[in-house]
C-alpha cells in the first residue's frame, strides 16, 4: 500500500525534474515506477524507498527515477508525414531563405535515437551528399541517450517502422542478432543531455526543431515556456515540427501553422 504522502513526494519530484505532471487521480500510474525503484534500490516497502530518498538520495537515484518516468516509446519513421514534409517542403523552403547555409536541426527529445536517425535517412535518401546539414539530438534520459549514442538496436527495434531496404543500407549486423547504425549516418548526429525545463536554449540557432510527443505531458505553463524558448531558438523562417495532433492551443506563441505534405508544422515568421 502506497500512502498519499509517498505518491505526492514522487509526483512532485518528477514534476520538478521533468515537467511531467501526475495529478492526484493519476497517482496510480506511479505504482509500477515505485515498484521498479524498490527492486533497484533493494527496499522492502514503499516507505523504505521514501525514507531512502529523504535521507540519502544520490544523483544516480535521481537519474534512475527520471529514466523510468520519461516515456521512451519510439520507433523509426514514427507517423511518416513529418519526414516527408521535411524533405519535400521544409528543406526546399529553407534553401530559398538561407541559400548555401548549413541547415541546423535539433531533435530535442530524441529518446533512443530513432527520430534523429529517421531524419538522417530521409535527408540522405532525398539529397544524397549534396545537402550540408548538422543535427543535434538531445534527451533528458541518460539511459535513452546511452542507447542512442551506442547506435545498437535489436531485431525487434529495427523492424518497427524501418523499411528493410534502409536497414541493409544504413545498418550492419553485429553479434546477438543486433544491428549497429553505420558511421556514414551516425557521424552527422551529435547527442547530448538537455532538460527542456531547466537548461538554457541557444537563440536564433536552428532552421528546424523536432519536438514531438513531449508537450502532451506538460502542464499549460511549462508548455508555454518551452514553446517560447523553442520560438527563440529557431531562426526567422525556421520550422517547428510537433507530434500528430499537437498544437499551440493554450499558448500565445506566434508561430504560423502550415500544412505541408499532410503534416501540420509551425513556422517562425520571416523577418
Amino acid at each position: 500500500m502506497i500512502s498519499q504522502e509517498i505518491y505526492k513526494y514522487f509526483a512532485d519530484f518528477v514534476f520538478k525534474k521533468t515537467g511531467i505532471f501526475y495529478p492526484e487521480k493519476d497517482f496510480y500510474r506511479l505504482d509500477s515506477r515505485i515498484n521498479t525503484m524498490m527492486k533497484e534500490f533493494r527496499c522492502d516497502t514503499p516507505d523504505d524507498l521514501y525514507q531512502m530518498f529523504l535521507t540519502k538520495k544520490t544523483e544516480q537515484m535521481e537519474r534512475f527515477l527520471i529514466d523510468i518516468c520519461t516515456n521512451n516509446e519510439t520507433y523509426f519513421f514514427r507517423d511518416n508525414k513529418p519526414f516527408d514534409a521535411l524533405v519535400n517542403d521544409i528543406i526546399p523552403q529553407l534553401q530559398e531563405i538561407y541559400p548555401n547555409q548549413t541547415i541546423q536541426m535539433w531533435s530535442c527529445a530524441s529518446s533512443t535515437g530513432q527520430e534523429p536517425l529517421s531524419i538522417m535517412m530521409s535527408l540522405k535518401e532525398k539529397f544524397g551528399d549534396s545537402l550540408n546539414f548538422s543535427l543535434k539530438a538531445t534527451d533528458i534520459s541518460s539511459k535513452a541517450l546511452k542507447k542512442a549514442t551506442d547506435g545498437v538496436y535489436s531485431n525487434l527495434d529495427v523492424q518497427r517502422g524501418l523499411p528493410v531496404q534502409l536497414l541493409v543500407k544504413y545498418f550492419e549486423s553485429v553479434e546477438n542478432s543486433q544491428w549497429k547504425v553505420k558511421s556514414e549516418l551516425s557521424k552527422h548526429v551529435s547527442y547530448s543531455s538537455f532538460n527542456l525545463l531547466t537548461d538554457i536554449f541557444e537563440r536564433n540557432k536552428f532552421h528546424v526543431v523536432f519536438c514531438r510527443n513531449v508537450l502532451i505531458y506538460q502542464n499549460p505553463e511549462n508548455k508555454q515556456e518551452i514553446l517560447s524558448n523553442i520560438y527563440h531558438a529557431l531562426k526567422p523562417g525556421g520550422f517547428l515540427v510537433m507530434g500528430a495532433g499537437e498544437s499551440l492551443i493554450g499558448t500565445n506563441i506566434q508561430l504560423e501553422q502550415k500544412s505541408l505534405s499532410g503534416c501540420m508544422v509551425f513556422q517562425r515568421p520571416k523577418e
Binding site: N155, L156, Q159, V164, V168, E172, S173, S177
Partner: peptide
C-alpha cells in the same frame, strides 16, 4: 535468416519486405 547478404538476396529476387523471426504482431 537475418544476415544482411540474405536479406539483399531476397530483395533482389523480388521480395518486397522482410520479417525476421521472432517478431510481434505489431510488426
Amino acid at each position: 535468416e537475418n544476415k544482411p547478404e540474405k536479406i539483399v538476396k531476397a530483395l533482389q529476387n523480388g521480395a518486397s519486405e522482410y520479417i525476421m523471426k521472432p517478431f510481434t504482431q505489431d510488426i
